[in-house]
Computed example of a mutant assay.
Amino acid sequence: MSPPSSSDKKQSAAARVLGSASAGICEIAVFHPVDTISKRLMSNHTKITSGAQLNSVIFRDHAKEAFGKRLFTLFPGLGYAACYKILQRVYKYGGQPFANEFLTKNFSDTYESYFGKKTGKALLSASAGSLIGIGEIVLLPLDVLKIKRQTNPESFKGRGFVKIIQDEGLGLYRGWGWTAARNAPGSFALFGGNAFAKEYIFGLSDYTSASWYQNFVASIFGASSSLIVSAPLDVIKTRIQNRNFENPESGFTILKNMAKNEGITSFFKGLTPKLLTTGPKLVFSFALAQTLIPAFDTLLK
């Protein structure tokens, strides 16, 4: 086997963990309210026709309160969100480089023979992202609890975290198949779009040498691609997870009912606000992680 075509600089594991965790902390501090709005819009089953109805969907029972008080209602599940987001970003942004190095070492010749050197390298990065995305389901319980706190707090009924874990057990992994089905193409598009931008727009041979501006632009391509590709499955996943614990519904049932009662466009509910809200959040954290990991690597040497 010939030497791998990738010339990306390898950072230490500590740098990858610290850089990714820092990005996750910054992301949750800035964007948690935005995430709550997006999840509530995706969980809404009716067509929004007025500003008053939009206000009701977003703020629920607090829709008529003063604006300042309404804003504080957008922070439910912050503890779950912080745990989930930091672990997710460490796993995803810190883990993808390891998967990429493994695939590059073992399959670079195959990718290059089929797709060429530049495209093959970008697709290796995308494939590594897809593998990492599938494995992300191990964090699913935290995601489920975060979404329920954001969209269906009644399902907790006064129970704490430990009590819910004891009561629900593996039920917290409900929707894992749909989550994996969403994450595989979504993460492929995220890391693939990012890699293609660095390869073909900026002509970088070492992706880790990208400047903040280059990471930011490349992250826009990756994040936009990921959100569009994963949108239909993300809506189904969210609806599976936000139902009451005692009243689950399968993904296929949700899919059938959505197509029958709400039409095909329902699978893209929340996409526009997601591109405008979750998009910047993902761009922010992805670009920040890609910038901080090499910076931490330099500091730790």
Results as ranks from 00 to 15, higher is better:
G94L: 04
G193C: 06
N194C: 09
L123K: 02
Y114M: 13
I86P: 05
G203W: 04
A210S: 06
A181H: 04
G94D: 03
G135C: 14
F188R: 06
F115Y: 08
G135E: 08
I134Q: 00
E136N: 14
F196Y: 01
L139E: 05
K157N: 15
K157Q: 15
W178A: 09
F107G: 05
Y207F: 07
L145W: 07
E136P: 00
D167W: 08
F191C: 10
K163F: 09
L78Q: 11
E199R: 06
A210Q: 03
A99L: 01
F196V: 14
G158H: 07
Y80D: 01
N152G: 13
I86E: 11
G171Q: 10
P141N: 09
Y91W: 15
K117Q: 11
Y200K: 05
S155F: 02
N194T: 11
N183G: 00
G95F: 07
F188M: 10
V138S: 08
R149A: 15
S205G: 13
L145K: 11
P76K: 02
A128H: 04
F98Y: 15
I134T: 10
P76M: 04
K146Q: 09
K121I: 05
E136G: 13
W178T: 11
Y111K: 11
G77T: 03
T151F: 03
N152P: 12
G133C: 13
L172C: 10
Q166K: 14
G94R: 01
L145I: 10
T208M: 12
V138C: 08
F196G: 04
G133R: 01
G186W: 02
F191T: 05
F102L: 14
Y200M: 03
S127W: 07
N152K: 12
I147D: 03
S155N: 06
P141I: 05
A195N: 02
D143L: 14
L74A: 06
R89P: 00
F75M: 14
E154K: 05
V144L: 00
K85A: 01
G160S: 10
L123H: 00
A122W: 02
G135L: 13
N100E: 15
I164K: 00
N194H: 12
